[in-house]
């Protein structure tokens, strides 16, 4: 039982990180119906910014986290403005290919400047272990829970209570109707990228701390899994991404702990296909009737 709870905590830490990345996927998909393949690489850039800030500028954990979030957010907006905005009226697959191009560019740009080697992430947090009745929680895990929790509350507040959040919801429901109501659709889309990318940047720094290592290709696998998480929860639905992320994290950890870690990823993708067959709109998704 103890090991089960212990694995549950490990699963929740991993799941929190997936949830942070999945939020960006789900928001962007909700607003422009784009599977933003560059999102996993923004998370990677976030990790590298955090690494550089701590290593070269001697920053602490929180300043590095905030800088990584800010720079990732700017990168996200820049990518949207340069690469996706000119394609607003093009076919969706053209935008998808552009996103893949951006993803390759970020990966290979980082490979070029930082090299392919794996780097050790500086440990700015003391690796203290708290144990409660035989269950150990590390300080880093607590920090992951805390940061994720605060960021998600903040996101819910922005989306539900502010004017910009209202605009986001309006554009994702019907972009042209929103435009007629005087909402600046382009700015709203950029803002969505801003929010999503900043969360990915935060996830990057947290992963660096949690696993100690970063490399330019680190965004590929978590990116795909976070996308699976977004679909699992119901793509386009913000609470769905959180639930999906946590579910995927827990499943992955449990399969590694009690089954075979080699088939971990296969189980995750298998669940994805089951969900698509049984409940294609995802856990929280509603079935929308299509009108002519």
């Amino acid at each position: 039982m103890d090991t089960f709870i212990q694995q549950m905590i490990n699963g929740l830490s991993l799941g929190s990180i997936y949830a942070l990345i999945a939020l960006g996927y789900t928001m962007v998909y909700g607003i422009i119906k784009l599977i933003n393949f560059a999102h996993g690489d923004i998370y990677m850039v976030g990790a590298f910014v955090g690494y550089t800030m701590i290593n070269s500028f001697g920053m602490g954990f929180f300043p590095a986290l905030v800088t990584a979030m800010a720079l990732s957010a700017l990168l996200g907006v820049l990518i949207e403005r340069i690469a996706y905005k000119p394609l607003r009226n093009a076919t969706r697959i053209a935008v998808l290919i552009t996103a893949i191009g951006v993803s390759y560019l970020l990966q290979n740009g980082m490979l070029y400047f930082y090299g392919a080697g794996v780097r050790a992430f500086p440990q700015v947090l003391e690796n203290k272990l708290y144990s409660v009745g035989g269950i150990k929680v590390s300080q880093i895990q607590l920090m992951i829970f805390g940061t994720t929790f605060i960021l998600m509350i903040l996101l819910q507040f922005i989306v539900q209570k502010t004017k910009m959040g209202k605009a986001m919801r309006a554009v994702s429901t019907d972009a042209s109707a929103a435009q007629l109501m005087g909402i600046n659709v382009d700015n709203t889309i950029s803002f969505t990228f801003f929010l999503g990318s900043s969360l990915a940047g935060a996830a990057g720094v947290l992963v660096g701390l949690y696993y100690n290592t970063i490399d330019p290709m680190m965004g590929v696998a978590p990116g795909l899994k976070a996308f699976v998480a977004a679909v699992l929860g119901g793509i386009g639905i913000i609470p769905g991404a959180m639930i999906g992320g946590l579910t995927i994290g827990i499943i992955e950890t449990m399969v590694s702990a009690y089954g075979n870690s080699m088939i971990r990823d296969a189980v995750v993708y298998g669940i994805l296909i089951l969900i698509l067959i049984i409940r294609p709109a995802g856990i929280l998704g509603k079935h929308v009737k299509e009108k002519v």
């Binding site: 690469a83 000119p86 394609l87 093009a90 076919t91 053209a94 935008v95 290919i97 552009t98 893949i100 191009g101 951006v102 390759y104 560019l105 990966q107 290979n108 740009g109 490979l111 070029y112």
Partner: peptide, 20 residues
């Protein structure tokens, strides 16, 4: 190693100017 960077840039530019 510059090859993939050029490839990625070419891809983005082609898609922006000739999305079809």
């Amino acid at each position: 190693s510059l090859r993939m960077i050029i490839y990625a840039l070419a891809l983005i530019v082609i898609m922006i100017f000739k999305p079809s």
